[in-house]
Design a protein around this nucleic acid. Structure first.
Lengths: 140, 140
DNA sequence: CCTACATCCTCTAGCGACTAGAGGTGCAAG
DNA sequence: CTTGCACCTCTAGTCGCTAGAGGATGTAGG
């Protein structure tokens, strides 16, 4: 049993040192054992948990969603309906976000194309932003 | 000259009342005249400015970018190259964001499809999150 | 054994862009 | 004149970290 320092845990999991301490402080990660000199000492299971958290964060899951997923993971005998629901919700969010970003992209392209590199008073970038009526009114 | 209260300005611009006061506090919006009873009194130009800000925020421009755009708008004789640059930068950001969300969507779909509605220990949602190696390693 | 230096510790404060709430004042209608 | 909403200021909270101060520990070389 070699002791894993927080720095090593950070390198191996890809989660920054202060972020690991932060996750501990909000209860996402259990308090690890300490060395004689009060330094955190992690175990392989902690590394897996950190990788899980990191990956879920990269996928845009909120901390509370991750907390729920971790609770499920800790008790693998229950139905995975909740995990499924969390992922589905997130999928819908992502699809919605993609749709609005595509609309946004179209609008930005119009702006940039329309900019004749002249003076501001002829610039479509400013104009489009100023005149709300010119774009799609898709306000959630 | 009818006086426009902050509530009316909010309704007409779609910017919430506390947010209008916030924009004033950070200098995006000039301090308006006050009524005898110390209440803010806006003018049509303020409504246009608020609509501009709101629209730009909806398009995901950061407040500092909006500040720059507003400065340009306030002096329309200069070249619109800066406005163009700001919009182009934003366009690239948006394109990047769309790309990563598409990758994410694919991964989430895999998860949800793979979930056989059984128990957690067979659930792909949990599994995919736990095993980092199963997904694309596109970490900026 | 001593020194240098990296790494660790705790704690507090800051980021962006608001949002919520407390506690008080102004104003228009009935 | 009172009710009740809209307004005022101010502070603190949100989320998910990140940065920095100021000090302790651990390790490698001399």
């Amino acid at each position: 049993m070699k002791k894993i320092t927080i720095g090593e845990a950070s390198r191996k999991s890809g989660v920054k040192v202060p972020t690991i301490r932060y996750y501990e402080s909000i209860g996402l990660l259990a308090e690890p054992n300490r060395s004689e000199g009060n330094q955190r000492s992690y175990e392989p299971a902690d590394l897996r948990r950190l990788a899980f958290i990191r990956h879920a964060r990269e996928l845009g899951f909120e901390v509370e969603a991750i907390r729920a997923l971790l609770t499920l993971q800790d008790d693998p005998h229950q139905s995975c309906a909740s995990a499924d629901a969390i992922a589905k919700t997130r999928l819908i969010e992502v699809e919605q976000r993609i749709r609005s970003l595509m609309a946004l992209k179209a609008e930005l392209e119009l702006m940039v194309e329309g900019c004749g590199h002249g003076r501001v008073d002829q610039c479509r970038v400013i104009e489009v932003l100023a005149d709300h009526g010119q774009c799609s009114h898709s306000h959630h």
